[in-house]
Design a protein around this nucleic acid. Structure first.
Ligand SMILES: [Mn+2]
Ligand SMILES: [Mn+2]
Ligand SMILES: [Zn+2]
Ligand SMILES: [Zn+2]
Lengths: 145, 145
DNA sequence: ACACGTTATAAGAATTATTCCTATCTAGGA
DNA sequence: TCCTAGATAGGAATAATTCTTATAACGTGT
């Protein structure tokens, strides 16, 4: 049902509902439902190719850019220079705790709203659109060096 | 004096104090003193080449990695995929407000310590080392599209 | 001051992630 | 069914970063 809802949203936006786009959306929705970590473009491509062996990497990147522009997807950038993508769901907002050793990612259910507000007050002429909050460290597994 | 202090620190660490490293450190210190935004590897290289025309990009990257590992430099990753570097000074801690259009960067003097604490409580088995907080939007100049 | 071993450097090749190019295809409206 | 703007595949191009290797030089110990 989440998928149908999102495909409907895509249709409303006015972009073409190609099979490639549907499949990419499906992969993102599945990951969201499992509660797993955000996906890299490469991981998404590998998943999509199980059904669409011919899809080009360029299409995946282009589609992710489109979804991001339309607010359906959020693009994340972590300290190891990895770029990842995850579904955006209204009413759900979280940040990320990342292991510096294995890359393991956990959700942080808190948001620095107070800092955001103070930043707004500090720079009232700046039109704030978004923010990121990442915490880095070593996961239980990696602490046992 | 900041520079001398830092070079002293480098010596203490036990790595060789080459002219290249001194010059890179100088560039970082100057930028810190102006209060300007963090520098990209390319910007640092261009500055250093005014005095050391022959320095290789690889040396700049290697040196920045060394400084970062030793805690003298902080590496930042922004949403436009730009990687930047800034001097770390004890007792000084800030975050960044970034213009999505022109890349203009301002310092945010607030830190989400409460979120950090709650994250610690939420994942007590995770050894937290660091964090990032970035705010994105449009600067006054870029708002007049 | 000198010699030596270790570590750092320059230069260019290699790697990797991402975007561009262009000919071809197709989703969806008429 | 037809038409066309918009999307795709595939490969080339780009850009940032890292690797390789031969040479250079820092700084400890003589
Ligand atoms: Mn997430
Ligand atoms: Mn800064
Ligand atoms: Zn880990
Ligand atoms: Zn701007």
């Amino acid at each position: 049902m989440v998928l149908e809802e999102l495909l409907e949203q895509l249709k409303k936006i006015g972009i073409r509902l190609t099979p490639q786009r549907q499949e990419i959306m499906l992969v993102l929705v599945e990951r969201f439902q499992e509660g797993g970590p955000p996906l890299s473009a490469d991981e998404i491509t590998r998943h999509v190719r199980m059904r669409y062996p011919g899809i080009s990497l360029d299409t995946v990147y282009r589609t992710l850019a489109t979804f991001t522009k339309e607010g359906l997807v959020r693009e994340l950038q972590f300290r190891d220079h990895s770029r990842r993508f995850e579904l955006v769901r209204k009413g759900e907002h979280h940040h990320h705790l990342v292991c510096l050793s294995c890359g393991n990612i956990k959700k942080i259910p808190y948001c620095p709203e107070d800092c955001l507000e103070r930043t707004r007050e500090c720079y009232p002429e700046f039109e704030i659109k978004d923010h990121s909050f990442n915490v880095y460290g070593y996961c239980p597994k990696c602490r046992e060096d």
